[in-house]
Design a protein around this nucleic acid. Structure first.
Length: 109
DNA sequence: GCAGTGACTAGTA
DNA sequence: ATACTAGCCACTG
């Protein structure tokens, strides 16, 4: 019925299935939802979540394996820092160029 | 309605 | 590998 709500809920359902120590990309989530061109929308859905949400939003990175930058003035500006911290706590490793080794940590595919 | 703006991506050079 | 570009599309002023 309400496509907006359904999309956002769908994002959370998928993200909740990503196990600790693994990561997924925005585009991957969008494709699994059946909206292959809505990667940016996935990012917006995650931006609505509080930093202490139960949803493991920190396991979502961009297609290059980097932690995407927030807008400086946005509500969750600076959460990139904790995102990397959470991932490292779960055993996810970063390359010297601040990239996750997707080959090793990507969830599915 | 139009223009600018992103937690994006795939393509090209 | 890096840099720039075109599409993308909901949201905002």
């Amino acid at each position: 019925m309400n496509e907006k709500i359904e999309f956002v809920q769908g994002v959370y359902l998928i993200v909740n299935q990503v196990p600790p120590g693994k990561v997924a990309t925005y585009g991957q989530i969008a494709r699994l939802l059946g909206y292959p061109s809505h990667a940016r929308r996935v990012g917006r859905a995650l931006a609505m979540l509080p930093d202490d949400s139960d949803v493991p939003w920190h396991r979502i990175v961009n297609s290059k394996g980097e932690v995407s930058a927030r807008s400086q003035w946005s509500e969750n500006a600076g959460s990139e820092i904790s995102q990397r911290y959470f991932l490292e706590q779960e055993g996810v490793e970063f390359s010297p160029q601040n990239r996750i080794y997707l080959k090793q940590f990507l969830w599915q595919e």
